[in-house]
Simulated assay, not measured.
Amino acid sequence: MKARIKWVQDATFVGESGSGHAVVMDGPPEHGGRNLGIRPMEMLLLGMGGCTSFDVINILKKSRQPVRDCFAELYAERAETEPKVFTHIHVHFVITGKGLSEKHVKRAVELSAGKYCSASIMLANGGVEISHDYEVLEPEDE
């Protein structure tokens, strides 16, 4: 896997993935940025959320669960002093589907957290406390 980060100006950078996708990253004005893009630590949090969400959906699909919607809300706490690393991340999944098995959702979340989500596991091995919970909803339109 490769990535390339190009400095644009001030605290603005463009990150390009090995697969050719680009994203703008920028710092807040108090650090010389112009608030033109996502902060690098936000990107890290989004990456972890995307990784675990990908796993959960993949596991549920393989279990033939009727998932209609899924989103994960991530809440992170950072250390007060430099380096301001993440100290705790909580992931709350909201999964919607007609007749979803809560047992399967629980299993998917646990498998992602403990076995498949390389981002979560890497952060946890680095000392970040990671917790998960979920809720299962029935679609409103049926």
Results as ranks from 00 to 15, higher is better:
E16C: 05
G20W: 07
H21E: 05
H21P: 00
A22E: 15
P28T: 06
P29C: 13
E30W: 04
G33F: 04
N35F: 01
L36S: 03
I38E: 02
I38S: 00
R39V: 01
P40C: 06
P40I: 02
M41S: 14
M43N: 02
L44Q: 04
L46M: 15
G47V: 14
M48K: 00
M48W: 07
G49C: 11
S53T: 14
F54Q: 10
N58F: 13
S63Y: 09
R64H: 09
Q65S: 08
P66I: 13
P66T: 12
P66S: 11
V67M: 08
R68F: 09
D69F: 05
F71N: 11
F71E: 12
F71Q: 14
L74W: 06
Y75D: 05
Y75E: 00
E77N: 12
R78I: 11
R78T: 10
R78N: 06
R78D: 11
A79R: 15
E80P: 08
E80D: 10
F86V: 08
T87H: 10
I89E: 02
V91W: 00
T96I: 12
G97F: 13
K106M: 14
R107M: 06
A108S: 15
E110V: 11
E110H: 13
L111E: 07
L111V: 08
L111W: 08
S112K: 00
A113K: 15
Y116W: 10
A119C: 14
S120K: 03
S120Q: 09
I121F: 14
V128G: 04
H132D: 06
H132Y: 00
H132S: 10
V136A: 03
E138R: 08
E138G: 02
E138T: 06
